[in-house]
Amino acid sequence: MAGKSVPVYDIDNFNFQGTESAFYASTFPDHLKQHAQFILAPHRHSFYLCVLFTKGSGIHEIDFNAYDIVPGSVFMLFPGQVHTWKVSEDIDGYIFFHDKEFYNLNFTHDKVENYPFFSSTENLPLIILNKEQVSGIEIRFREIVREYLSRQLMGFQKICSLLAVLYIDLSRGYLPIEQRAKQNETQLAQAHMLEILIESNFRNIKYPRQYAQMMFMSEKNLNRICKITFNKTTSDVIADRIILEAKRMLVHSKFSIIQISEELGYIDDSYFIRVFKKRTGDTPMQFIKRYGKRNY
């Protein structure tokens, strides 16, 4: 079946310094000026993205969830998420992105996916900083952009160190204390493994017991981990990933509802329509009318 129409951008699609194509950084006005022709329309990335807004306003839509852009907004996006933004003319801030290997290969005992905002697609992609926090975080962003543009000796090694400090600072204000107390590293790792398995198999494998078997644990134990980590049942986590992909395809592809049903592993399209309506409150056609069909 033909691929989806929403574009997927690699770091190579953006201007970068030197020979390192696994990292990019810029002020947001410069980024917008250079790449407005394609970043203002819905698109995906193959990399992790982090942006701080220090001035202006707008709307940032990420996988059908709309977030207000205000000074102090920090957005953290996973590879593969569909997003678009509408920003005011006075928008200002900083943006950078990198692939997984750029960070992980530089740290023996640390991984980018271990940070709370990157540990699960279920987690909120936004932090709102107060004025005091903004001043400290903005210094980190500014230094990263300056180092990237300066092309100094061992510049990317320094950038990796600056990223680690920034991600630690952001993590401290991200995860509520009461949520940290409920989770442990083993449960977080198991929840992350479940998400990886679902991401690779959700079109063909849809039952909790199948994922429990793949993870060598009981269905009851897996469900308990999901409740603690996501506040959802395993069935809900699986279904939410399927429905998200259905929404993406309904709005951003040229596929018919029947084709989407088949692509997502449903033999009976009427059953797919019932599942979609149960999870969203809309039929697929109602959802398309509400968001509009966006072909590229």
Rank of each mutant, 00 (worst) to 15 (best):
R274T: 02
V237F: 01
L166F: 12
Y207T: 11
L250A: 11
T283V: 13
C50Q: 08
Q81Y: 04
E122K: 13
Y296A: 01
C160P: 07
E138C: 06
K131C: 15
A212M: 02
A239P: 00
F97A: 15
W85E: 07
D240W: 06
E132M: 06
I69Q: 02
Y207M: 11
G265V: 15
L197I: 06
L166W: 03
N201P: 03
H109P: 00
R290T: 05
H109R: 12
W85G: 11
M154S: 02
V145W: 15
L170G: 08
E61P: 14
I137A: 07
D12V: 05
Q213A: 12
E262A: 03
L40N: 01
L222R: 03
V51H: 00
I196W: 07
I198C: 15
Y291R: 03
Q190S: 10
F53E: 10
L149E: 14
R274L: 15
K100W: 05
S256T: 03
K278Y: 13
M249L: 10
R203H: 12
F117P: 08
Y167H: 15
I273L: 07
C50H: 09
D10E: 11
L194F: 10
Q179M: 06
S46D: 14
V145S: 01
G72A: 04
C226P: 05
E178Q: 09
G136N: 01
K247N: 05
V87C: 10
K4N: 05
Y167C: 10
D92I: 01
I228M: 02
Q183N: 11
S46M: 08
Q286C: 08
S120E: 14
Y167L: 04
S21V: 02
A41H: 06
Y103V: 09
F53D: 09
R224P: 08
I228V: 12
F23K: 05
S5F: 10
L129G: 05
P125L: 13
L49E: 07
K131F: 03
T233Q: 04
D92R: 01
T280I: 09
D110M: 06
R294T: 15
T233I: 02
S150E: 09
K206H: 11
F78W: 02
E138A: 14
I198S: 11
L77C: 11
Q286S: 06
Q190W: 09
F23Y: 15
M285L: 15
Y271K: 04
H192D: 06
T27P: 09
L129I: 12
G136Y: 11
Y207H: 08
E262Y: 10
F255P: 01
I260K: 01
P284C: 12
M214K: 09
M76T: 05
L129M: 04
S73V: 01
A2R: 13
I258Q: 05
G93T: 08
F287K: 00
C226H: 07
Q213F: 05
P125C: 10
T234K: 03
S218E: 03
I137P: 00
Q157W: 15
C50S: 12
Y9I: 05
P42D: 14
N104P: 01
N15Y: 09
V112W: 00
S119R: 09
Y48Q: 07
L40Y: 13
E20G: 04
H98G: 04
C50A: 14
I128N: 13
I288V: 10
F230R: 03
M285N: 12
H35N: 02
V165H: 12
Y291P: 00
V145A: 14
S256H: 06
D169V: 10
S135W: 07
Y9T: 05
P208F: 12
I196V: 08
Y67C: 07
P29R: 07
